[in-house]
Simulated assay, not measured.
Amino acid sequence: MREQQSRRRKIILALFLSGLSGFIDILGLFGIGGMFLSFMSGNSTRLAFYLAEGEFKHALPYLLLIFGFVFGAFAGDLVKSRWHTHQLLIILMIETILVLTSFFMLSYNLTDEWSYLPLTVAMGIQNAIQIVVDHKIIGRTFFSGVLHSLGVSISQALQKNRPWRSAAIDLAIWLVAVSGAFLAGWLQPNIPVTTLLLGVSIILLFLIFVIIIFNRREKGDFISLRQG
């Protein structure tokens, strides 16, 4: 029973993180700078294009985005290496601070042309939240990887090497990520980006509060993260 509860919590958290990634990505694409904030494959392709065209000024923001994402992944892994307990809580706290940083930069016009950088660092840090369910890592922003995993899971299920629930998890994560992106695209034209970022921050703070309660109840981390 306890193992089933742990599995359910991990899936819910992974779905939330996937939806958040899709939401932030669309905010960046249509509201902040016109660039992807978690989809680094798209940014890498655009970087290569502008470099090939010799448009170094246009290439620089994409290079900074990629650097920010890599730095976020570095920082997230460092947190997991240095803190053996409360890893999830610390990573989410840092992510919330970064989202709020972008919010204040936009709200007070503080170098708002670079206000996307804290968000892409936040997405890099979020990828350090490696949740293992059914021997697979879920909840990260690698949506191409999720679709690849879905194809493999379907193949394995048809061969009766893996249960269909594995494919169902992959499909659910992709659908939630797309839904998060859809929600941001639907809200963004009518609601200021600053308001949406504040809303994301409040939701993250609520999640942190819930995790603190569960950690106290469980007398430890109620969700353990994969190392490495």
Results as ranks from 00 to 15, higher is better:
76 G>Y: 03
20 L>E: 00
50 Y>V: 01
164 W>F: 11
186 W>N: 00
21 S>P: 02
175 L>G: 08
220 G>E: 05
145 G>Y: 09
104 F>S: 13
144 S>K: 04
107 S>F: 08
5 Q>S: 11
34 G>W: 01
220 G>F: 02
146 V>A: 08
8 R>T: 11
85 T>E: 09
178 V>K: 03
99 V>H: 06
19 G>D: 00
38 S>C: 07
79 V>Y: 04
134 D>C: 07
179 S>A: 15
54 G>N: 10
154 I>E: 12
90 I>R: 05
128 A>C: 09
142 F>D: 06
31 G>I: 01
104 F>W: 15
146 V>C: 05
117 L>D: 00
136 K>C: 07
179 S>H: 09
192 P>N: 14
194 T>H: 14
163 P>C: 00
217 R>L: 14
46 R>M: 13
54 G>R: 13
87 Q>K: 13
63 L>A: 13
171 L>W: 05
134 D>L: 11
161 N>P: 00
89 L>V: 04
93 M>K: 13
223 I>V: 15
34 G>K: 01
125 I>K: 08
175 L>N: 00
27 L>E: 00
23 F>E: 00
119 L>M: 12
227 Q>I: 09
191 I>D: 06
92 L>W: 07
27 L>M: 09
161 N>T: 14
161 N>C: 05
10 K>A: 04
95 E>C: 09
47 L>I: 03
132 V>P: 02
201 S>D: 09
134 D>W: 09
121 V>C: 10
151 G>M: 11
154 I>V: 14
214 F>H: 12
161 N>L: 13
140 R>K: 09
102 S>I: 02
105 M>C: 05
108 Y>C: 14
218 E>W: 06
132 V>F: 01
113 E>K: 10
188 Q>W: 06
188 Q>M: 13
132 V>H: 04
19 G>C: 01
82 R>H: 14
140 R>A: 11
148 H>A: 12
31 G>R: 03
177 A>H: 08
10 K>P: 04
118 P>R: 02
91 I>F: 12
111 T>Y: 11
50 Y>S: 01
190 N>E: 07
50 Y>M: 02
138 I>K: 03
128 A>R: 05
100 L>T: 14
156 Q>I: 03
60 L>P: 10
172 A>H: 07
168 A>L: 09
218 E>M: 07
124 G>F: 10
47 L>V: 02
195 T>P: 12
97 I>R: 10
192 P>H: 12
195 T>F: 11
129 I>F: 03
32 I>S: 02
223 I>A: 07
153 S>V: 09
149 S>Y: 08
